[in-house]
Design a binder for these strands. Sequence first.
DNA 1: TTGCGACTATCTATCAGTTGATAGGCAATC
DNA 2: GATTGCCTATCAACTGATAGATAGTCGCAA
Lengths: 181, 181
Amino acid sequence: MPPTMKEKILDAAEKRVRGAGFSAMSFRDLAGDVGIKSASVHYHFPTKPDLGEALVDRYTSQFKEQLDQIDTSDLQTALNSYVALYSQALVLDESICLCAIMGAEAIGLPKNVNQKTKTFFKMNRTWLLELLQRKGVQNPDDTSCLIVAALEGGMIVASPSNDRAIFDQIAKAAIQSVTKI
Amino acid sequence: MPPTMKEKILDAAEKRVRGAGFSAMSFRDLAGDVGIKSASVHYHFPTKPDLGEALVDRYTSQFKEQLDQIDTSDLQTALNSYVALYSQALVLDESICLCAIMGAEAIGLPKNVNQKTKTFFKMNRTWLLELLQRKGVQNPDDTSCLIVAALEGGMIVASPSNDRAIFDQIAKAAIQSVTKI
DNA sequence: TTGCGACTATCTATCAGTTGATAGGCAATC
DNA sequence: GATTGCCTATCAACTGATAGATAGTCGCAA
């Protein structure tokens, strides 16, 4: 089935937020992107906080689906697949992780959006924690925290330089730390 | 000597950007903060990119000054002092590191601002690298990258939850990884 | 000493463009 | 005939930026 207008709006919003941030995205931008008027965007998402909440919610669900498809039989392979998801999210000069920017802007964002962003990070940490515990890794709690922070931070450090190598190096270092903390 | 108007504007701008982001900050906000009119802010900083550049530049200089005051005779003490600088920058519900948000917004920001943000991260990595090399730590290059990313990312992960414990845990894990990568 | 020009730092007033949001109409569908 | 999904039209507020006026300060020459 073809995407609904609601989905098309969310697609456009995700692209814009991941590119320039939540506060830099407007209803008129989105309307232009999907070929309707801004008043019609308000029909689907009454307010900007509503839109933001739906956006992070959908992003989290989609990310979770991808996590669930990762083959976790081998630890190193699983971690590499996990990093690959973040690596995919980082398209230099185009986009970073949605929740990296939502987290960075958090102080100025509505509470409902922050709640959803919090859930995204929590979900990531939980997934990693379970994996590391199952594999008998030492300090799984600290390590899962570190990996999520390093990957999100890696995008932010790499983005102004537009240098993918920095992100890759950080990701590599984060994975190496697993077996050694 | 009392702060100049230029400095007062930068102070106000830093507070606002670290709270809500660069694109969410306006010349009128700043004018109100320091008690002049927005046209007068333009006198000191002709355009918004000019202001952004000066802002990151000053932030980097001030951070560098603090780095240079750290006692580096003992590795653990030095790392703890380094983390303390970031910890200071993270005032939950109020502000995160200026360059965390500038890095997150990078794609939509003017080039001159990104250049300065890049310099901030580079300066951090260089300082850490020299410290780790001097102390004979293994893989100093990877490790310095990881620490910067983890701390910046730690703020972003902690901010939506408004939970300082998450940042502290990440910082601890990052420091622990030094002796073990 | 006086006076003049340049400079600094602010002001008022204004601009065109954008913002999130609402009211109300209109056609298609169920 | 109610609901859905869009539309036009409009709103007050805000945005970055500019033009031009004004008052104060400083250095220097008559």
